[in-house]
Structures are given as C-alpha cells and as structure tokens.
C-alpha cells in the first residue's frame, strides 16, 4: 500500500480538495470516467460527513497492488462523536441532519469493498476500496 494523498478536512473547501486529489489518483491508476465519478462522489460523501458530524478529520487515498490487482483505497477517519447504531446508518434514508440519508449506503454501492469501525465518543473510521477492472 502506498499513501498518495492525505487531506485534512476542516471546511467545505477541503472537501473539494479531497475529491480533486481522488479524481487525479483515479485517473492516474487508469479508472474510466464512470469509476472516476463514483470514486469522487464517494470521497465527497465521506468528507462531507466528517465536516458535518465530526467537525474535522482526514481523507487518505492510497493505491493498492495486490497480486496483480490494482485498486484505490479511501480511508476516512475522525475523532468525532462516533456512530451508535451502524446497522441503522447503513439503511437508505436514515439521517440525523435532514439530509437524504443516502450518503453511506450510497458509498457502499459506489465502491467494491466497504467497512465501518466506530466507537461512540471516540470517532469513526471508514475504509472503502474500488478495484480496477
């Protein structure tokens, strides 16, 4: 694994910065335009959740090369309030902020692998990967 970029998310413009980084790395790895859009959108969702619910955190983007398979991994982590009921936030339409509640279940569908690790009052780490086909 090779960390290509790490963006601290503190304000709305950092969200834009993180997704530009993501788009550039996806392009470099050879992802097509649809997957580039999926990756960029996933980063946008995760970064915005950090900004909205944790205040600040970071987005790390790395490239993977495991037994010839090439992938892009996003790690979104924060030391915010954490998520109490992970099953619930993965349901379509669940939101605590009056949003669409489509972000997290959407990221899971946009990407190939997805996992959440979260502890109340300690923070949240979401790791998600897209493989190049």
């Amino acid at each position: 694994m090779n960390i290509q970029s790490c963006v601290e998310v503190r304000n709305e413009w950092d969200i834009v910065k993180a997704r530009q980084e993501g788009r550039n790395i996806a392009k470099e790895l050879g992802f097509g335009s649809v997957d580039q859009a999926r990756i960029t959108t996933a980063i946008s969702e995760l970064a915005r959740n950090i900004y909205l619910y944790a205040g600040k955190g970071r987005i790390e983007i790395s490239n993977l090369d495991s037994s010839g398979k090439i992938g892009l991994r996003i790690i979104a982590s924060d030391d915010g309030p954490g998520i109490k009921d992970i099953r619930k936030v993965m349901e379509d339409g669940f939101t605590t902020s009056g949003g669409l509640g489509a972000g997290l279940p959407g990221v899971k569908r946009l990407m190939d692998e997805f996992s959440i690790d979260s502890k109340e009052n300690e923070g949240t780490e979401i790791i998600t990967t897209k493989w190049l086909r």
Partner: peptide, 13 residues
Amino acid sequence: RPEIAQTIVNLGI
C-alpha cells in the same frame, strides 16, 4: 452526463 446519471442511481437518489 452519463457518468453522473450512474452515480445518482448508485446513490439511490
């Protein structure tokens, strides 16, 4: 755009 249409569908919007 086509790629935007696909991501909107993936997001379940």
